[in-house]
Design a protein around this nucleic acid. Structure first.
Lengths: 223, 223
DNA sequence: CATTCCCTTTAGTATGTACTAATACCATAC
DNA sequence: GTATGGTATTAGTACATACTAAAGGGAATG
């Protein structure tokens, strides 16, 4: 319970743990190691510090659980991340595909005063620019379906690119330049399960996506 | 010459060294120790890393000098600091007295893309919100005189609060609430050298400042 | 049952950034 | 010329964050 404010590293861990918990995924060290791109021993010792400082508990079955204090800190860093993304996108006009990685560095330096000011200027958004829900607004995104579950001919609106896809800047650039961004319409053109691809047609033409990627893109069907 | 990008700590050192050099002050470790509020041995080892990585040279007489690479990095961090201050002040409406310390944390996470966008949105300012010159714009502030050199009855305009005063949040709050901010008018009311104070009168009433502080506040005389 | 796979941990190391205590160096002043 | 004050360094330590190599555990699968 020593630390009052998490370090940037701990904030990164908290954010990922919160998101995994939110999604009902198993929260274990191996997942963090992958998502944070650090070695397994690094995760072991960092989790040890996090337990010591009261951010998480680790069950006998090695599952990681946020403490109430950990939940608060995780929500704060995610809120600041998403608000910073909006600031970069709307106020500074950075490309949609770039705001995540910029915000990821800046988020750790945002005070609650700046956060409140951003909430005010940005009209208290419920979603980030990629359609992911602000902590507490999960119900909004829960009605959308994965793009991977569509069938040929479906008319859809892209609603959400999952947080974990945002980590890949090459993918994000591909999505942006092919108009796979929230609010854009598309029609499912072709699904090739043996090839693990799904092809859609939108304003920018024909776009093919891997099915694994399509599982983390959420859409609304149009009638 | 190992490091491409300075760490936040090194950026702090670079900024202070640049500012001391700009002001013609003696750039030695003891000064850094004071201004950065770290111990002398910490400065010794950090400067050693900075020499190793090509940011500075240390003369046989122990004077610290930025290398060309060090100058570039220092200018960049100061530019980003000042642009961030303006963003916080003009776009997010944070109080003038608070933007320095907020920007001091954020400045290390600003990419050149964000920097360019800020320059655009903020119309390429030549001064920071406290009247200190952007690197390369030193000539603008060189015509102002220290407030401490005024005489009773002088009508003045406050132009600049020196960077090193910005470090004291209590002082900054005092200055803001007494309208000692760039652009504000005042008249010198009383100077008490034996007391080391100078008193002025402005819209907000009568304000007394210590002479040491007044040495780092720059003004323009009105005729 | 043994092998394999996934996961975690231990052991040892490195680096940046901090500290205190003690030492050393130099110039100026008495 | 010795004392003082300002400055810098060495020595030893601490902590957060990273790594590799190696070992250990548990579950599933042949």
């Amino acid at each position: 319970m020593t630390e009052l404010t998490p370090t940037p590293t701990i904030e990164d861990y908290l954010g990922i743990i919160f998101t995994l918990e939110r999604d009902g995924e198993e929260v274990i060290g191996a997942r963090l190691s992958e998502l944070l791109e650090v070695s397994a021993p690094t995760v072991t010792v960092t989790l040890r510090r996090m337990v010591r400082d009261g951010w998480i508990n680790i069950t006998p079955a090695r599952k990681i659980e946020l403490t109430p204090k950990g939940v608060d800190a995780a929500k704060a860093v995610i809120r600041r991340h998403m608000l910073t993304e909006w600031m970069l996108a709307k106020i500074l006009n950075l490309p949609w595909s770039k705001v995540h990685e910029e915000a990821h560095r800046i988020e750790h330096s945002i005070s609650s005063e700046v956060e409140l000011s951003l909430i005010d200027k940005l009209d208290d958004p419920a979603l980030c620019p990629h359609g992911n829900p602000m902590p507490g607004q999960e119900s909004i995104s829960s009605k959308w379906k994965p793009l991977s579950e569509c069938i040929t001919g479906d008319k859809i609106i892209i609603e959400r690119i999952h947080e974990f896809l945002e980590e890949d800047p090459v993918l994000m650039d591909y999505l942006e330049s092919n108009q796979i961004v929230p609010g854009k319409q598309a029609v499912i053109n072709e699904i090739l399960p043996f090839n693990k691809t799904i092809t859609l047609k939108n304003e920018s033409g024909i776009v093919t996506l891997g099915l694994d990627i399509a599982k983390s893109i959420y859409i609304e069907k149009q009638h």
